[in-house]
Structures are given as C-alpha cells and as structure tokens.
Design a binder for these strands. Structure first.
Length: 277
DNA sequence: ACGAGGTCCTGCGAGC
DNA sequence: TGCTCGCAGGACCTCG
C-alpha cells in the first residue's frame, strides 16, 4: 500500500477538498472492503454528515465527522482516494469500491483494484482502542531514538520485519524499510534486540529522514500509487536500493542483492555497506 | 515467542 | 498470440 509518505500526500491533497463538505449519498459498491459493520449501517452513519477534518494516522486516512464518528480508510496495496467533478466517468469509476457526492459538484471515490483495502466507521471509544494498538508516529517531533529502541526491544526478529510491524512503529512499509536500513548501514536480517545503541540512533535518524524526503517528493510511485489529485510521486527517482537489485550500490558500487528471505518480502541491500552490523 | 507460510484479491510482465 | 507462473507499497491468520 501506500506507506506513510504516500498517505500523508493524499491527506494533504484531500483535506481542502473535503473539509466542510458532506457525504450526500455514500454508496458502498463492493461490500467486501467493509470491516466491523454492514453496508447499510456504514452508509447510514455517513449520510449527510459533515466532514470536520481529514488526518493521517500511520498508513490510515481518518475522516472526522460532525457526529463524532471517524471514517477510517486503509489503502493497503492498490487503494486510492480521489475527488472528481461530477458526473463520474469511466476511468474514475474503474475499480471503485465506494463513492459519495460531496454537495458541491464533486464526489469522493475510493478505488482499489485488488480490494485488499478496508473501510470502517468507528465511534470515539472504538477509535481510541484502534489507535492505541498502533505504534508511535516516527515523524512526531517527540519521537526520539530511545522510543525506537523501546519499539525494538524484546524481539530477536529481523530488524526489517520489526520496523514494518505497525504495532511497534507506525507507517513504515517495504520500500522505506529497505531505504532506511540502507541509509543507516544496518543489515536487514540483523536481530532487532541485538542492535547496538549507535545503530538504533542511526536507524532512527534514517527512518525520519527518508520519510521526510519522500513526503517532500510527494511519495513513491512504483506502479499503482497516485496522490489525491491523481498525480504520480517523485521519490521513485531517489530510491537507493528498493527496485535496484543487481545494480551497483550508490555508495560503494558493489552489486546490490535482492532476497525474499525476510518475511517473504523483497529485500534489497548492499552486502558491503550493510554487512557490518 | 518465533518463523514459516497461507489468505484475501487482480493485473502485469516474463518465459515458454 | 496465448497460456502459466511468480510477484506486487499490506496485514491478518494458523500451524508447528
């Protein structure tokens, strides 16, 4: 799915188009994307509700309604959220799983080719337990190296798998895990608990830097990702390792290696720059 | 507690 | 041209 930088970009695009508008005719086109309620309940709780704000939590888009409910969208691998002028036409409606007019001649459309994405509506109480189960936001000013150290503590699993575990740390997926580990010079298969404090500090810095850089570039488009305005991101041109298996390391020119041995997800790294620790 | 692997889906590119 | 296979920005589950 879009990872933290892509979701952040989408939220920044959508917020001005959605805030103050209302869900006029919320319509679930593919009920299998709904979690935690039925289609009719979800549509009823959105209908004619005003949108107060659009925010990001981890990789989720959170739409706050005037009822106190929150609409939580998880885009997973191929999901996208767009605002289009009415009437909706073919390309905009292809693979649409949810749509609603917004009352100003535009409509919000949730598209998802693979339909791994999810849509749920949560009340205040449900939201609190939902967000409590997700790890800290790495770009919060208060997120320090010590917080990352605590997130990594107590597990000997591969560091790459651990930083992608949303219960431990919010927002990092496969692309940025690969990139951050390269920037920090950390071996992706290294046991999380065995990382020395200097490596944790380097990784903390690298995660924050790569996520910030990617937001600055409006995300990474490998294939499906588009921002809320339908534009491609720019960070794919700045990737150092992801998708560069077999090509020379940008730092030392050694051939980068790709493996699927870490959690079954493609992992590209430099033996030389990331072998030492 | 951990790792491995399957599951949900569809599309695409590689290889034959 | 047309097939089959493996893989894809994620996250959940079960099994051993």
């Amino acid at each position: 799915m879009p990872e933290l930088p892509e979701v952040e970009t989408i939220v920044r695009d959508l917020a001005p188009a959605l805030e103050g508008r209302s869900f006029r005719n919320p319509t679930v086109l593919r009920p299998d994307i709904i979690r935690g309620s039925t289609r009719s309940t979800l549509e009823r709780r959105l209908r004619n509700r005003r949108i107060l704000s659009v925010q990001r939590r981890a990789k989720h888009i959170v739409v706050m309604l005037d009822s106190g409910d929150r609409v939580v969208v998880q885009l997973r691998m191929t999901g996208g959220l767009f605002v289009h002028p009415l009437p909706l036409r073919r390309p905009a409606l292809d693979y649409a799983v949810f749509r609603s007019a917004l009352g100003n001649g535009t409509a919000l459309v949730f598209r998802d080719v693979r339909r791994l994405g999810t849509l749920r509506v949560l009340n205040e109480t449900q939201w609190h337990s939902y967000t409590a189960s997700i790890g800290p936001e790495p770009l919060e000013a208060s997120f320090a190296a010590g917080d990352l150290g605590r997130a990594l503590a107590g597990t000997r699993q591969a560091i790459k798998k651990v930083i992608m575990d949303q219960r431990r740390l919010a927002g990092v997926g496969n692309i940025y895990a690969n990139e951050a580990l390269f920037r920090a010079g950390v071996d992706p298969s290294r046991s999380a608990a065995a990382l020395p404090p200097e490596a944790v500090a380097d990784l903390h810095r690298a995660i924050r830097a790569v996520l910030s850089d990617a937001i600055g570039a409006r995300g990474t488009t490998v294939r499906d990702y588009r921002s809320g305005t339908g534009a491609e991101g720019g960070f794919q041109h700045a990737l150092a390792v992801y998708g560069r298996g077999g090509q020379p390391c940008l730092r030392c020119r050694t051939r980068l290696v790709t493996t699927h041995r870490i959690d079954g997800r493609s992992t590209t790294f430099c033996w030389r720059c990331q072998g030492g620790r």
